[in-house]
Design a protein around this nucleic acid. Structure first.
Lengths: 343, 343
DNA sequence: TTGTAGGCGTTATCAC
DNA sequence: GTGATAACGCCTACAA
């Protein structure tokens, strides 16, 4: 069975290629009968238009690209779901592009733009240490969603980019503030060892300690090695086990993701201690599991659905050349649950 | 800043387009100096080849497509991660295509084949009620991974497809067998209401009851409405709450995913009862959370990494026209944990 | 309402 | 080694 092209469909129907094209693309100027006949033939011979050829010719492709840092992270789940739905509601297509830990998201976005003639791009995760000059080369609008600190200034007539995210540093600071207010003086901190997100969290942690007049102790900081799959329960479990074994004194563990916090809880439980009686545990990001774990886990609930929603809306505003807010910082909500208590 | 094409690069360097093409594609017959000069110019002017045009011309694109039923399901996490790595190790690219609950995966695959000239396709999830005649139209090799019951017979010279999965029905049956062996006589069952996976699970459940001489009671069956995001903790929680309120008599809950089981556990706990003392809970699929939940959850651990690995290997074997096993059924492992006990 | 022809950006096949 | 040039499959003026 060979590749069937528009030409052959035309021949099969005894019409010209343009007529077939018109039938496919719902152009108005076409005889309904011819159209029906063509559509039937297409069905019968299972003709599928070649999108590469289409994109080569067309200026608009009605597709939105989502570039995701480590797609295997469960954190993106709902967000992807929302994005998918919203984009589909607007009659656009979605293409997903994973970017591995050692890949450059901007480079991939540049490719995508050329290749798929995407109308816009949403960056999910990463985007801390990007090359701004490369980023400027993107001619399509884009939104940095759920991470990153800023977005280049506009140079053209219309705004081309926007940021929709939480402020990691402030959020982490508020969590540590809360833990301090509970009476904790030595808070172990599980964070990512990278210079992007991990650094922001750490800054927030340090700031809070300072504000609360507590001493910073490097021994309480656990830096997860950058590399694949940092935010796993297993990681949280293992490093907490080590911490417990190390004999370092602490009364509370704060992890920068709920999955890590789950691991931390289990490690405490397995060591024969209790949460929160012996050690308190707090997480961040607000995944479902924090709510349903036993004990339920105190966390910072990031407004993920809201972020996803605003990202799509903002992207379409950019596409439609409307005014947009360049930096939307959405606040998280600190949710006290069973895993923490006042000392 | 305008789109720069290969033509302009050629002009800029004072060479022909074919020479530029050779430089880009690492062809051997080219003067290293010219090549360097071209590469420099490309860098300077930020030329990015248009992949649509490439794909139009090229016969091979060295990309593998993964078609995923509901990508937002956390179950796929590790598998995606493995696939990504394996494909990259073989110097191929990966494109991800989500397929929503109401979309047809085969249709999307057909598109992908034409558009991206993919060398092969891996179907993740779904693929129970596909249109076999459409599936046969795929000319590239494909592997149905982690789900589905069978794969069409080969018609051509070389095998074109393969199946790598667990046997859902048998797995579910073995879990219910186990629960029966613990002394449970009334096992509530949380499953998906669809005709694919949900049906297979239900068959296994029924078979086991029969084998163990137990009566099937429709009141114990909770069918989650097909639609978006079935496998959420929240779903498991809500339907268990209802079940508990309904007053139906049972001693054990078996849910077809670990996330559902987590929700079930929490519902039991919130109702003031204990797991496993008052109600036993078992899950299936073997996600991390089942191991780290408190209590840890008895589950069927599907060999997800193994399935992903075998899927890639098999796909590349198909691509390279090697012999392959058409149906690889990998067995799951029943892991007894804290959430169940002998009555 | 329909058909013809040119071009989109690239690669491959030729000559040179 | 290099440079024209013909495809690749589609869309869209423009002509009929």
């Amino acid at each position: 069975m060979e590749q069937i092209t528009i030409k052959e469909v035309a021949k099969l129907c005894g019409v010209g290629v343009s007529t077939v094209s018109r039938a496919i693309n719902n152009h108005p100027d076409i005889n309904p009968e011819t159209k029906q006949k063509i559509l039937d033939t297409i069905r019968e011979y299972n003709y599928v238009p070649n999108n590469s050829a289409r994109n080569l010719k067309r200026t608009d492709s009605n597709t939105i690209a989502v570039v995701i840092k480590e797609i295997s992270n469960s954190y993106w789940g709902v967000m992807l779901h929302v994005l998918e739905r919203e984009v589909r509601d607007r009659k656009y297509c979605l293409v997903l592009q994973n970017v591995a830990d050692d890949e450059d998201e901007v480079e991939l976005a540049l490719q995508l733009e050329k290749e798929k003639k995407v109308k816009g791009i949403i960056f999910l995760g990463g985007m801390y240490n990007y090359d701004e000059s490369r980023l400027r080369m993107l001619r399509v609008p884009y939104v940095i969603s759920g991470s990153g600190k800023t977005v280049p200034e506009d140079t053209g007539t219309y705004p081309k980019s926007a940021l929709v995210t939480t402020d990691t540093e402030i959020e982490s600071q508020s969590m540590v503030d809360y833990l301090c207010s509970c009476g904790h003086k030595r808070i172990a901190f599980i964070t990512s060892g990278d210079e992007g997100l991990g650094r922001c969290h750490l800054n927030g942690y340090k700031r809070s300690l300072e504000k609360n007049g507590l001493e910073y102790d490097e021994k309480l900081i656990i830096r997860l090695k950058p590399g694949k799959r940092i935010y796993t329960i297993e990681n949280g479990y293992n490093c907490t086990c080590e911490l417990l074994k190390s004999g370092v004194d602490f009364s509370c563990i704060y992890a920068i993701s709920d999955t890590l916090a789950v691991g931390a809880c289990r490690a405490v439980i397995d060591s024969g201690k209790r949460v929160p009686e012996d050690y308190c545990v707090a997480g961040a990001d607000g995944q479902d599991i924090a709510e349903y774990y036993h004990p339920s886990i105190t966390t910072l609930k990031y407004p993920r659905v809201e972020i996803a929603l605003q990202s799509v809306r903002t992207l379409f505003d950019l596409i439609n050349r409307k005014k947009v807010v360049k930096r939307q910082i959405l606040g998280g909500t600190l949710i006290e649950r069973e895993s923490t208590r006042k000392l």
